[in-house]
Amino acid sequence: MMRFFSIFFLSILLFTVSNTAHAADSDAAALFYKMRERLNYVKDYVADVRMKIDVSFMRIPTVQGKLYYKAPDKLKLERNGGIAILPKKNINLTLSNLVPAGNTTVIDAGYDIIDNQKVHIIKVVPEQEQNDIVLTKIWIDEAHLLALRTETTTRDNGTIKMDLRFGKYADVALPDKVIFYIDVKEYKLPKGVTMDYDGNESIAGAQPAKGSKARKGKIQIEYLSYIINKGIPDEIFAEKAK
């Protein structure tokens, strides 16, 4: 009799735990799909941006320009005759491209706090194997259906972490500020080619690249204003990289 009750209670316990986990994953999946649906509202935008690239071997001043985006993956920074530097197109700087498309497996990963705000963490694994994204971890503000942080592991481009801060465009899920953390490879040119002048003095604030390991870089974009869904011709994105 005792054995019967033990098996009975254990079964109920397992059933409850399994159901709870399943329910949590279902909730997480619903949350993810709702958030992804919101991202689909924006088909294109032109944004005035201020951009700062913070990579150890790159000394680039903060630049202003216009960032053109057209769904699903077209992106271009224009700087009124100046040089525009963006990570290669396969590391896209838009949230919609760092969130897996198509069918996905969504796993509930608990809760966390970002800027004194409780956020729901979910892990999303795309079901299509040819997708460059292997896994995306998303920190979602459930009340506003906004992703405040993502961490995307890609097949070819390392891990891209993104922090997003929302303000006046939160209702269309467009951020006011985005910080990307990317893996950058070593930079080195032969001294015989560049014939550097060092003057026997290291430049203050400069961190010369050393070693062969990949290191982290940071790209910060402040979105000053947006013009949303007004249509952008494809020719805008046609210029080749020089």
Partner: peptide, 20 residues
Amino acid sequence: GKGDMINLKSDAFVMILKDD
């Protein structure tokens, strides 16, 4: 023509704005 200037050093990539 004019443009921002890139200076490639052996261990650094320097960009100078065209007005500078």
